[in-house]
């Protein structure tokens, strides 16, 4: 018999994993659902670890989502997805605590495996840092592809026509831009 927490963990694993594997093959709606579910999961996971700084939770949720998006090529299907997700989240928590340089960084929460997993009721709260502002600071060759394709929903081809860039330059711009954005996020904490 699995414990309640164990069942919740197994359910989170199987739901997240099946969505993510479809997303890895290029399924946009599965990826959207995955990120939405992942954000709720992270909100609870990070909330328990940042109990001293509730205002930082949503910022770190966004930072983790961006990091997981940029690093999604480092997941391999034979690995439990929650192990991958939690390793990245823990890395980002440690990074944040270190930058706050407080003794809280030494805490190792005991309830790692006793998670009560997030459900859809968990609402996103406001962030302190605005990613849109950081996005505006990117150079045009990265900012324009992201704005056109990722925010306005244009196709790669349309964005290429609009900006006068080649299609591959648009793709590279999106890729590099999101990496640069993640670096700016790190620098802003």
């Amino acid at each position: 018999m699995l414990s309640h927490a164990g069942q919740a963990q197994a359910q989170a694993e199987s739901e997240l994993r099946s969505l993510f594997l479809r997303a890895q093959d290029g399924d946009a709606s599965a990826y959207h659902a995955f990120l939405f579910r992942l954000a709720a999961h992270l909100r609870v996971y990070l909330g328990r670890r940042l109990f001293g700084w509730p205002d930082d939770v949503e910022d770190l949720v966004q930072e983790c989502l961006l990091a997981m998006h940029n690093q999604r090529h480092t997941y391999q299907p034979e690995q439990p997805l929650t192990a991958w997700v939690h390793a990245i989240a823990r890395y980002k928590v440690i990074d944040l605590l270190r930058s706050k340089s407080t003794r809280e960084g030494l805490h190792d929460p005991l309830d790692d495996e006793l998670a009560v997993f997030a459900t859809c009721e968990t609402q996103a709260s406001d962030t302190r840092r605005d990613l849109a502002v950081l996005l505006d600071a990117l150079p045009d060759r990265q900012r324009l592809p992201i704005t056109h394709v990722k925010l306005q929903g244009l196709s790669i081809a349309e964005a290429a026509r609009l900006t006068g860039m080649s299609e591959s330059a648009v793709k590279v711009g999106i890729h590099r831009g999101l990496k640069a954005l993640a670096l700016k996020v790190r620098g802003s904490t």
Binding site: A28, L65, L66, L151
Partner: peptide, 9 residues
């Protein structure tokens, strides 16, 4: 952010 990341995967 989620909508942005999941567009055009």
């Amino acid at each position: 952010l989620i909508a942005m990341l999941s567009a055009e995967p």
